[in-house]
Amino acid sequence: MTAARLSVRDVSWSPSHDAGNLLHATSFELAPGRTLGVVGPNGAGKTTLLRLLYRFHHPTTGSVVIDDDNIWDLSARAVARRVAAVLQEQPSDFALTVGEIVALGRTPHRRGFAGTSGARDKDIIDEALVRLNLSGLANRHLGTLSGGERQRVMVARALAQEPRLLILDEPTNHLDIRNQLEVLDLIRTLPLTIVTSLHDLNLAAGVCDDILLLQSGQTMGFGPPAQVLSEAAVSDTFHVVARREQLSHSNTDHLTFHLHAKGPPR
């Protein structure tokens, strides 16, 4: 696996000419192998930004550049060989097995009629299944799996794509604590460039190298978590009173949130 360099240059997006921008000019650079967390309140433009990165939306202005190539200068297939996305879409139950879903990741790599799959395809699929601890479930139907298992299937499918940039949209949503931690652990260990939207700021601070803080389509901050997720910035962005506190046993920072400025004196 190789990781991609991602440059987002003055990217903005609006759904139509007369509508306002859902995302205002946004720029950042992500070095190969780094993990970026995109955080912000509901409707801040997180999903819009991700859609611009995986070539679902065409930017109104600016460009998304992956390893020196503007993604709109490449074909959809060529981009699909570099960028994989794990979205919140739930596959309908069409009786596909876990193995068959993961095999979909090979789609952009296949050539020719009916996309014959080679031995290398099979190795890659098996590797993805093993990596996500799904080998025993390869022949199970997606419909029979738990939420956490399904999420792992979708990540394995994305890895079978052999991407250099992996995009995850709220990967911990609807997962129990153990599954959340497993997904985050995976994000931490994958040698890819990763962009993920996350709701939980403390999880984001723990797992990400960089944080992009969004509010109403505006960038409120970009940089290391400790710097971007300051009490003032978080309070301002989320319209809450945020406090950075120290957990007494592990001595790690932890953000707490309150509706009103009250509580123990500081």
């Binding site: 074909s75 959809a76 699909a80 994989a84 996305a85 979205l87 596959p91 069409f94 979909l104």
Partner: peptide, 12 residues
């Protein structure tokens, strides 16, 4: 069968 957006990220 997985979804429009996922299918499009697969280059379709």
């Amino acid at each position: 069968t997985v979804g429009d957006e996922t299918a499009s990220t697969l280059g379709i």
